[in-house]
Design a protein around this nucleic acid. Structure first.
Lengths: 342, 342
DNA sequence: CATATTTGTGTAATCGATTGCGCAAATTAC
DNA sequence: GTAATTTGCGCAATCGATTACACAAATATG
């Protein structure tokens, strides 16, 4: 039951030197002699000295904490992105503080405040679906704290962003379906004001046009993109006078719903209906048939966001804000393979 | 571009009072008059004052940060548990700092140190598969900081624990299979020294015995319980002279692998082979057939862990350590329903 | 050999909020 | 009407580490 809270003053007393010398020795200051450093280090080890980061943080205004804001952590895309952020941040000596907004705007505002009060050195965020007002993010900028947005980004804010090319991902997906011989391709989307869904819709449309296929508004289904939405939209689509022969969904979950409904209606995937989803969730390769998806490389996305944060910290605001757009990849599985491997 | 860093001293100067009065006013100290509080609050709002938590943390030794250690965040079970922890912690005014060990013992040790240096007020952890030495956890105890283990727990350490009743979950699952008429039930397990897997094995065995079925060691398959493991174990099992007619897997992922392999071998689930998994991952209800699983109520588990942390903080170490064992529930889906609803 | 530099360490202020102690004024008690 | 309390606030120390400045001793320069 030894007292386990020694400070640099305790070390100093033991060695008959001052705390400043100890501090310098621990920080490897060149003005301290080698012997002194030696003995300080030894004593620190002997006393099992643990530095108090809080004190250092107060003194030099750096907490070495990076705040991360995500809508929710229990979605594979976000947890992987967070993991990517952590990988980079940890090796650079930063701890990560993660907060969830649950897609709730008010929670997002209070979260930003909480992180600022905690004196984080920077914030990486993906905002809520309900967020339209960016004042809370402005506040971060005003404080001179680096802010990096990822996935759900905005050009209006004038901060660095990391996202994948949603347009391209959608284009790949749609073009792949066309190449597989599907001709009447539907699209699942969310409220269109969110840029990622807008981009996906554009990519879908572009692929159609480029291959001489008509764009038919009745084939675009707007919903929350959850599993049940995927089922219901499929039902509506199949009730059309001219039902589709494929679906490109802007989410993986609703694509799964679509598959289930197709099977339930006695049709086959991919023979009768081809299906492609967006975001490579873990379940994509577990379904029957396995789901073709657009891989967003979420870990890499997180890495990139953390790297930009570190760069902004060191270089000041020169060269910033930056905008990084990663290329997605189409992971082709059975759900869209009518002709066999392309 | 206004300066946005005001302290209580700035407020004090504006009002011609001292910082101590401001501090007391902000903390609603009864010795401060109502008018003074009023004017302090107004001035604080006018200057857009943001308290510096770091300074307060240094002074009173409380950071209001709760450290959480999990093997990895991109697993539904852990991310949900974390979400449960956050729910409780946030409403109690705590921020949560999440760290991952990637099932790596060394990373776990350094993570504990990082959290201690960050002066967290408590730690909630689920340790790595490779962890056998608990010295780093002892250190937390020595510092007098509350430590709560969840899911992967240990009685040896003398700290509070929250877990689900793995034995009971396994018992439910196995008994359910028996009730559905399956008679030769296999079991997927991991290395047996980890208590959760030991318990699941015991529950499985108990259910067999209680229903007069023999325990057959050749039906117990040990692996890492990943998807591919589930496939391979199934293959081995089907090659036995007397193959099983059901599998109770200690993980959901390997149960999915089992389903896939059964289907690939031209047999049907649940008609020929019944399958039950452990841990209600998101994909369980998305598979075909949908997977019967043991629900660990991970969010609730997280809630409970956070509650115990808060209690330990307030009540001192009286009544502690505590051990909370939650009851799991069997979520019955198609993969085990041979006879229809039980 | 005198001056200039470098080396090694100490002194004391600082970061911002909190709090024990003290003290005068206002209020209550008897 | 005097003594005892209460009310309201200021003073100054404190949490632990960092760092500008100072200063003596050692070494270098010319």
């Amino acid at each position: 039951m030894k007292k386990d809270k020694f400070t640099i003053h305790d070390i100093a007393r033991e060695l008959n030197i001052t705390a400043s010398t100890v501090s310098r020795a621990l920080n490897d200051n060149p003005r301290i002699s080698a012997e002194t450093k030696q003995s300080v280090l030894q004593m620190a080890k002997r006393l099992n000295y643990q530095p108090n980061n809080i004190a250092a943080a107060l003194r030099n205004g750096k907490s070495r904490i990076l705040g991360v804001i995500v809508p929710r952590i229990d979605r594979s895309f976000f947890s992987s992105a967070v993991r990517g952020i952590e990988e980079i941040a940890n090796t650079a000596g930063y701890n990560v503080m993660i907060c969830q907004t649950h897609e709730n705007f008010e929670k997002e505002v209070t979260t930003v405040e909480a992180l600022l009060n905690a004196q984080v050195d920077g914030i990486i965020a993906s905002y809520s679906k309900g967020t339209s007002n960016f004042e809370h993010f402005e506040k971060i900028k005003e404080k001179g704290i680096p802010l990096v947005l990822f996935d759900r980004t905005s050009d209006d804010l004038g901060v660095s962003q990391v996202a994948i090319d949603d347009f391209l991902g959608a284009y790949y997906a749609t073009a792949h379906l066309i190449a597989q011989g599907y001709r009447r391709i539907a699209h699942y989307t969310n409220i269109r004001k969110i840029s990622i869904f807008k981009e996906r819709l554009k990519g879908y449309r572009e692929a159609l046009t480029e291959h001489g296929l008509p764009f038919d508004e009745s084939l675009v289904q707007e919903s929350n993109l959850q599993f049940e939405d995927g089922r219901q939209c499929m039902q509506k689509l199949m009730a059309l006078p001219e039902p589709p022969d494929a679906v490109f969904s802007a989410s993986a979950l609703s694509a799964m719903g679509a598959i289930q409904m197709v099977k339930q209606m006695g049709k086959r995937v991919p023979e009768d209906i081809g299906i492609v989803g967006f975001s490579d969730e873990s379940f994509a390769s577990l379904s029957d048939p396995q789901l073709t998806t657009v891989d967003q490389h979420s870990i890499h996305l997180g890495n990139k966001a953390a790297e930009i944060f570190l760069q902004e910290l060191s270089k000041g605001s020169k060269d910033f804000p930056r905008k990084v757009v990663l290329k997605p990849d189409l992971i082709i599985r059975q759900s869209s393979l009518r002709k066999g491997k392309p």
